Amino acid sequence: MLGRILVATLVAFASVALAADLSGVNLGDVPQCGLLCIANTVAAKSSCSPTDFPCVCADTALTQELERCFATECSPRDALTTAKIAKDLCGAPARNIQLAVWLVPLINIILSTTFFILKLLSRVVLRQRFDIGDVALGISVGLTFPVLWVAFELVGYGLGQDVWNIPQDNITNILYLYWWAEIFYQAGLPLTRISILCFYLKVFPQRYIRWASIAFIVLNASDLIAFVVATVFQCYPIYGAWTFWDGSFEGHCNDIHLQGWVQAGINIALDILVITLPLPPLSRLTVSRQKKAQIMFMFSLGFFITIISIIRLKTLVVFANSINVSFDYVEPGLYSITEASVSIIIGCLPAVRALLRRVMPDLFASTRNLSVFSNGKPPKDEVSRQKFDRLEGTDTPP
């Protein structure tokens, strides 16, 4: 029985080798593990002849089985070489989404930077002091510019193309640049949330909001430190973060994908906490329905960040199981920069609204607020009125 199996395997192997030669593929370029995978998998899983490439290529389940065999039986470099030859034999089209790799970050960063400039202009026009929240948001904006540079560099190394269509050494460069981009991402999001929480401390006089804001600032600062450190030292030695892929790295790496899932889950939780914190007092404002709707809508836009975070979390499933790193890593990367940029825009909205309210008052015309709270009476002290006026951009300079 064993002899028959061996003979069948050798016959299939010879058939594949002959077919490869007839197809113009240099047999010396095909790793032996790849030839064995094709011969054995086709013989065991399909009724196709090993030399009938159109039949083999048309069977999606069979090609997926072949890819699994390449990944498990071959070294990473041999697996990519075999995959390249197999894709060429099947006439698979070369995919290229490199335009999105640099265009999406460019648009996002232009928009977020524009909103931040408008926020600073609002401070000048309304003669308001710059504060620590503005500094935190400014640093977050500054961290997006290296990401844009990384995006352009990644295009040069082939990000957006299938991994078997780029030089294999480019994979190391792609992973190295992703390592840097991930550090900027991990630092930027908590800083944006800290900026928003500093705004809450300026605007809302309620004690529970102030204490909660301080607590959430501490949580976000801890999140920043913990995950930046975890990202930098995800492998030991550090260079393993971008050299592990080909199996030559001798060291230790954390479960990078588990780390990504944990970080994404914490981000979503912190986003929800920060977004929902001011909604109860805002819902009790005794102002016109138009004004209340405008304010509630502005603050509720933060849920859009959560939606992006959840979609990004879904892409991490592909990210975790992919060997096609130069193509499958594009989507989670684009969601990351979009999440960071939208967070910055939302952090700027109150100041931008105040600026627009000053230069285009008719657009925001509505009945003057009577109270900050729901008791229907004018505020009992001037402090509450001033804090609410800051939200509207109508506070007078000190």
Rank of each mutant, 00 (worst) to 15 (best):
I97W: 12
R127Q: 13
T114N: 03
E67R: 15
I117H: 07
E65I: 03
K84D: 11
G91S: 01
I109T: 01
L66C: 01
F116L: 04
L106I: 06
F116D: 02
T72I: 15
N96Y: 13
A79Q: 05
F70Q: 00
D59A: 08
D78S: 08
S122T: 07
W102F: 14
V101G: 04
I109P: 00
D59F: 05
N96W: 15
C74S: 07
T114R: 10
T60P: 10
A79F: 11
L111V: 06
D78M: 00
L121H: 14
I117F: 09
A92C: 14
K119I: 06
R68L: 12
L126C: 09
S122I: 14
T63R: 03
L99P: 09
T114W: 14
Q128R: 09
P76S: 06
R123D: 08
F116R: 00
V125K: 06
A83E: 14
C69R: 01
T113D: 03
A100I: 05
S112W: 09
L62A: 02
I107Y: 05
T82I: 12
T81Y: 14
R68Q: 06
A86M: 14
T63Q: 12
C90T: 12
L120V: 13
A86T: 15
F70C: 04
A61Y: 00
D59C: 02
R123V: 03
V124S: 10
E65C: 03
L121P: 08
K87N: 10
K87T: 13
S112Q: 03
L89N: 05
I85G: 00
L126S: 11
C69H: 07
S75Q: 11
I85L: 05
S122Y: 02
I109G: 01
K84Q: 11
F116T: 02
Q64E: 08
P105K: 03
I97S: 06
A86N: 10
T72E: 07
V56M: 09
T113F: 06
S122C: 04
F115N: 00
L111Q: 07
A94M: 09
A58E: 12
F70W: 10
L80Y: 09
S112E: 12
T60M: 05
G91P: 00
L99R: 12
K119H: 09
C74D: 00
S112T: 12
Q128L: 11
E65M: 03
Q128V: 07
L120E: 03
D88F: 11
A86R: 04
D78H: 05
A94D: 06
I107H: 02
I107C: 13
D88C: 14
L118V: 07
C69T: 00
Q98H: 12
F70Y: 10
L126F: 14
L80K: 11
C74R: 09
T82E: 11
E73Y: 09
I85H: 02
L106N: 04
I110M: 06
T72K: 08
I117V: 07
E73K: 06
Q98I: 01
I117T: 04
D88K: 07
L121A: 15
T60S: 09
F115R: 00
E67N: 15
T81E: 02
D59H: 07
L66M: 03
I97A: 04
N108L: 09
V124P: 07
A58Y: 13
Q64G: 14
T63Y: 13
R77T: 06
L106C: 07
C90N: 13
K84N: 10
V104P: 00
L111K: 02
L80G: 10
D59W: 08
R68M: 14
K84T: 14
